[in-house]
Amino acid sequence: MEWLTAPFEATFVQRALWGGMLVSAICALAGTWVVLRGMAFLGDAMSHGLLPGVALAALCGGNLLVGAVASAAVMTAGVTALGRTPRLSQDTGIGLLFVGMLSLGVIIVSRSQSFAVDLTGFLFGDVLAVRRQDLHLLAAALSAALVVSALGHRAFLALAFDARKARTLGLRPRLAHAVLLGLLGLAIVASFHIVGTLLVLGLLLAPPAAALPWARGVHGVMALAALLGGAATFGGLLLSWHLGTAAGATVSALAVSLFFLSHVASGLRHRRTRPAPVPAVEVD
């Protein structure tokens, strides 16, 4: 028991745990739709697209969160606009925005004297540096994500399975897609300080993907994904404390490990429940 509880006696680890739990819940809400719609590349592009705003805010001595929100807004507007261009595939537009924003961010960061430190913190985060005010912001972000998810659930659901059906139902799929991009941007902005942009996809994709074989319905996937993300946060912080590893990377790696364990267990379950083949009967 001491091995399990000793790390969490430290105040900064307690804040890290609460921060990771809140981020897990936010990522469960957005990540479920990302997994259902196959938007992993878009999530990766948006997470890296935060770099220019964060880098500019750091260079000017401003608030990093404000810079991240500005970059997320630019990425959301850019993806929405390019998605309406008939001669350009969505993947191409996302890829161009991805490379352009990342390059611009590296150019801005290169103007700083602490290039390596700034870039490392942005890419990998620092979950152990979560402050009390960060927890308040994460709680507000979770509240906003819950409101958006509740109000947009019907449109998101129709959009995930049949955009044409959503249009015939009068659900305005383009607006729903833009709002969903905003929800994804909110999850990434809330998470990048915890695990960094390189590792945010671990919490955004792995828990919902791990929950899919076991949950019934979208709400079940979201709830189970939040629990799995919270378990990855707790286990990752515990292991990083005892093993001396990077906390954010350990949390993300454990979330991905839970995904593989979930699908292995799901495969074994299907093998056991699969009905035995009926032997052929020979007719004389």
Rank of each mutant, 00 (worst) to 15 (best):
12 F>T: 13
12 F>P: 00
13 V>G: 09
13 V>D: 05
13 V>C: 04
13 V>K: 01
14 Q>H: 07
14 Q>P: 00
14 Q>D: 02
14 Q>V: 05
15 R>E: 00
15 R>S: 02
15 R>F: 01
17 L>T: 07
17 L>K: 07
17 L>H: 01
20 G>K: 11
21 M>E: 05
22 L>S: 05
22 L>W: 08
23 V>R: 08
23 V>T: 15
23 V>W: 08
23 V>S: 14
25 A>M: 15
25 A>V: 13
26 I>G: 07
26 I>M: 14
26 I>A: 11
26 I>S: 10
26 I>R: 11
27 C>N: 14
28 A>Y: 09
29 L>R: 08
29 L>I: 14
29 L>T: 06
29 L>M: 11
30 A>T: 08
30 A>W: 02
30 A>R: 06
31 G>W: 02
31 G>M: 03
31 G>S: 06
33 W>G: 03
33 W>T: 02
33 W>R: 10
34 V>E: 00
34 V>F: 00
34 V>P: 00
34 V>W: 00
35 V>K: 01
36 L>M: 15
36 L>W: 05
37 R>M: 12
38 G>E: 04
40 A>D: 07
42 L>M: 15
42 L>G: 02
43 G>M: 02
43 G>S: 05
44 D>G: 15
44 D>C: 03
44 D>F: 10
45 A>V: 04
46 M>A: 10
46 M>I: 08
46 M>W: 05
46 M>N: 04
47 S>E: 12
47 S>N: 08
47 S>L: 11
48 H>V: 03
48 H>K: 03
49 G>W: 03
50 L>I: 11
51 L>A: 06
51 L>Y: 09
52 P>I: 06
52 P>Y: 13
53 G>K: 10
53 G>C: 09
53 G>D: 12
54 V>G: 14
54 V>C: 09
55 A>R: 09
55 A>L: 06
56 L>C: 06
56 L>Q: 06
57 A>G: 13
57 A>D: 08
57 A>T: 11
58 A>N: 10
59 L>Y: 13
59 L>V: 09
61 G>K: 12
61 G>Y: 14
62 G>V: 08
62 G>S: 12
63 N>C: 06
63 N>M: 10
63 N>T: 10
63 N>G: 10
63 N>F: 05
64 L>I: 13
64 L>F: 04
65 L>G: 09
67 G>I: 04
68 A>E: 07
70 A>N: 07
70 A>Y: 02
71 S>N: 10
71 S>G: 08
72 A>W: 06
72 A>P: 03
73 A>N: 04
73 A>M: 15
73 A>Y: 11
74 V>K: 10
74 V>R: 12
75 M>N: 04
75 M>P: 03
76 T>Q: 06
77 A>T: 10
77 A>K: 08
77 A>W: 02
77 A>L: 15
78 G>E: 01
79 V>W: 00
79 V>Q: 02
80 T>K: 06
80 T>N: 13
81 A>G: 05
81 A>D: 03
82 L>C: 09
82 L>K: 09
82 L>R: 11
84 R>G: 02
84 R>I: 02
84 R>T: 06
85 T>G: 01
